[in-house]
């Protein structure tokens, strides 16, 4: 078979056909992989929440978002058999050694820390990455801490007059970790007091609406990621 001439018609046709075939093929693959991708994302989120609020894998999760200075926090309320066993807050700090640090922290109903872990960071391997559970047991010390009992209600490293033992040679990373948790805690407590205030004037319609948006938000959130 002779090679095709490079006429304008041939060129346009060829490119068009190739792109069309590619688009159809990709659409097909996309449809097959859509569910596994979604599942992998859900799984990842659930695992992350389960670390900071143990037992979350057996319950249902209600999600809500909250804008704060310079970013967005996400709260995951974990409900097992109708009882809220804790709330995981995805929080952040921009003051890490490598910039942004994202932290997941779990609080009980009184605002005590259940557990915490780093989600994403760009800290130095071997130093700042000890904030992650998979690297070092450093963040175990946050278990059970109650920020409301602390001086000025601020979570700080010992160097700054707080209670947290910073990672050796990674004070900046440790401070950023505390900063992230502090931000999450404050938002969580504000949210509780707001919820209490709202509870005084119950409005059933609104609660129904709220859960609906929650589901939508979860869908939206996972699609965006």
């Amino acid at each position: 078979m002779a090679k095709k001439e490079s006429t304008f018609f041939n060129m346009t046709l060829t490119l068009f056909v190739i792109t069309a075939v590619a688009a159809v093929a990709l659409g097909y693959v996309y449809n097959i992989t859509k569910d596994p991708i979604q599942k992998a994302k859900d799984e990842k989120l659930k695992t992350a929440i389960n670390i900071v609020v143990p037992g979350a894998d057996k319950g249902t999760i209600e999600e809500s978002k909250l804008s704060v200075d310079g970013g967005e926090l996400v709260m995951y309320k974990v409900i097992v058999d109708g009882n809220c066993i804790g709330t995981a807050v995805k929080t952040f700090s921009n003051n890490g050694f490598g910039g942004l640090i994202t932290v997941m922290v779990g609080f009980d109903s009184e605002g005590k820390i259940i557990d915490s872990n780093v989600l994403e960071h760009k800290e130095t391997p071997g130093l700042g990455d000890k904030t992650s559970k998979s690297v070092a047991p450093w963040n175990e010390q946050f278990k059970g801490l109650d920020i409301s009992q602390m001086k000025d209600q601020m979570l700080k490293v010992t160097k700054d007059g707080g209670v947290v033992n910073a990672i050796t040679a990674a004070t900046i990373s440790s401070r950023a970790y505390c900063d992230a948790i502090q931000r999450g805690w404050k938002a969580y407590m504000d949210n509780i007091s707001k919820a209490v205030a709202e509870d005084k004037q119950p409005d059933t319609d609104e609660t129904v609406n709220e859960t609906e948006t929650d589901v939508e938000q979860i869908m939206e959130e996972t699609n965006n990621e």
Partner: peptide
């Protein structure tokens, strides 16, 4: 909703 066409 065809973000998967991004690379192409």
């Amino acid at each position: 909703e065809i973000q998967y066409m991004q690379t192409i």
